[in-house]
């Protein structure tokens, strides 16, 4: 890494901490970040899917497994992005005080933030790549466009991670996080088109689904994996997620600075 010629960028040194720490603790995260989605895929896609496919028309014109596999990719990215931005961020301020240790060194607040979000991006890349490999093994991939589902899933995760990190930096206990789960992540997981098309929702609820980031992540990933993506709607989905990520990043810069520099 260090060549002696060019210094390692400051934010990358921050990312290095999280990577080093992960090497020591990765085992516990394998269940939540990898095994759960695969179990979902097996239970819902293969198990429930056989029932769905036998008794009704194909969902969205494809077998149920093919329908939910890309949806679960986006939903998994959401979970990881959100999880990694909640307790780890608050803990780095309140419990372990990692951020303060970093700030006593050449790192600045912006490096601390970029390093942490950068690490979350690395985690999202790893999980998305493995997951897409599994999906391919299930025979779900129907289009070369599926390769673009990889960045799409990463951005989906970041669109949750950045604003949630901004929020987490303002928190002192887990009350706010519990609310995010109850009122945000779990309803999104169930009603954003992961398990059934949003068009099945009651009329009044549909606009709500369209407004949520997970809907756009699911729509984008599904279109790319199944090869049904249309250019402009996909660009719209991607733009929504990128803008949400950037807005979250700007907010996080403000909340991190307010909390860490006194």
């Amino acid at each position: 890494m260090t060549t002696g010629l060019r210094p390692t960028p400051l934010w990358l040194r921050g990312l290095g901490y999280w990577a080093y720490q992960y090497k020591r603790t990765w085992r516990s995260s394998v269940t939540t970040s990898f095994l759960y989605p695969v179990l979902y895929l097996a239970a819902m896609g293969v198990g429930l899917g056989s029932l769905v496919d036998r008794h009704s028309h194909l969902v969205g014109g494809v077998p149920y497994l093919d329908f939910i596999a890309p949806g679960l990719l986006a939903a998994t990215a959401m979970q990881i992005g959100a999880n990694e931005a909640m307790y780890p961020v608050m803990g780095a301020i309140k419990w372990v005080r990692t951020y303060f240790a970093m700030l006593a060194t050449p790192l600045r607040v912006i490096d601390v933030l970029r390093g942490h979000l950068g690490w979350i991006a690395v985690r999202l890349m790893a999980v998305s790549a493995i997951y897409l490999g599994v999906v391919a093994a299930f025979g779900v991939i129907r289009s070369p466009l599926a390769i673009l589902a990889f960045p799409a899933a990463v951005v989906t995760g970041l669109s949750f991670a950045a604003p949630i990190a901004a929020f987490a930096a303002t928190q002192d206990d887990n009350v706010g996080f519990t609310s995010i789960y109850r009122l945000g992540l779990i309803p999104l997981f169930l009603f954003s088109g992961t398990f059934f098309p949003v068009t099945e929702l009651p009329d009044w609820l549909r606009p709500v689904a369209y407004a949520t980031p997970l809907y756009h992540g699911v729509d984008l990933c599904r279109g790319l994996v199944l090869g049904t993506a249309e250019l402009w709607p996909s660009i719209g989905d991607a733009a929504y997620l990128v803008i949400l990520t950037l807005v979250g990043y700007r907010l996080a810069r403000a909340t991190f600075t307010k909390r860490l520099v006194v």
Binding site: T8, G14, Y20, R24, A101, P106
Partner: peptide
């Protein structure tokens, strides 16, 4: 606290590149 004594020195040294 989760890392070892030596790890703590190592990660800190890396902040200084």
């Amino acid at each position: 606290l989760e890392l070892t004594v030596l790890d703590n020195l190592t990660v800190y040294g890396r902040y200084f590149d």
